[in-house]
């Protein structure tokens, strides 16, 4: 056996041994441990009437006026894939997309305040599954949702506040509203 053959043989055995330890025992051990936290380990599902209606961590596609809209998504929240638009900052396509989304939002939100639309309402997220919007965008949509549901804007705003998370420690994250749990709260209102 030449030196190289001997090395390749040792490498093969080393890879197999380490695969058993790191590729089988470790992930399966962690999966067993995760059974202690079944809710988180399976995706923090939102249950309504005993059926999963989404994940707290994932945004959902909505078009009807009575639901809050999450951010624009490249995959339209299918969950089959994930990712962003990858348009560069000076791409003409990006400007066109932003303008089209602004026109669309203005059309379906006639009651919304004048002035600039919050940036997160116009831009696609990195994952295409972002469940969060800014408190400003939530408040901007509130008149539409209130009108569609026959509620007052104040009632809707109270639900927004209840589904708001402050940035962790004030600087680790951003203040944000979870659209999925907010819509779930709307869905189960009065029950």
């Amino acid at each position: 056996m030449t030196a190289m053959t001997r090395q390749l043989w040792a490498a093969t055995r080393a890879l197999l041994v380490l695969t058993v330890l790191l590729g089988v025992a470790y992930p399966l051990g962690m999966t067993a441990l995760a059974l202690a936290m079944p809710d988180r380990a399976t995706g923090s599902l939102v249950m309504i009437d005993g059926r999963p209606a989404g994940s707290v961590l994932l945004g959902q596609a909505t078009v009807e006026p009575q639901w809050f809209r999450a951010r624009p998504s490249v995959s339209d929240y299918s969950g089959e894939t994930s990712g962003g638009s990858n348009w560069g900052p000076s791409a003409a396509e990006l400007s066109a997309d932003l303008a089209a989304r602004a026109a669309d939002l203005r059309a379906v939100n006639p009651l919304a305040p004048a002035g600039p639309i919050p940036a997160d309402a116009l831009t696609t997220s990195a994952s295409g599954l972002d469940p969060h919007i800014s408190p400003a965008y939530a408040a901007w949509q509130a008149p539409r949702v209130a009108a569609a549901r026959g509620m007052t804007v104040e009632q809707v705003q109270r639900l927004i506040d209840a589904n708001m998370t402050s940035g962790e420690l004030g600087f680790l994250g951003a203040d944000r509203v979870n659209v999925t749990t907010l819509n779930a709260a709307l869905a189960t209102l009065g029950r």
Partner: peptide
């Protein structure tokens, strides 16, 4: 909140009645 399981994606019906794959 990071997931850890051996499940295949499950298809759920969202609040607005659409289909979504939860990985």
């Amino acid at each position: 909140g990071v997931i850890q399981n051996l499940d295949a994606p499950q298809t759920i019906t969202t609040l607005a009645g659409q289909q979504q794959a939860v990985q």
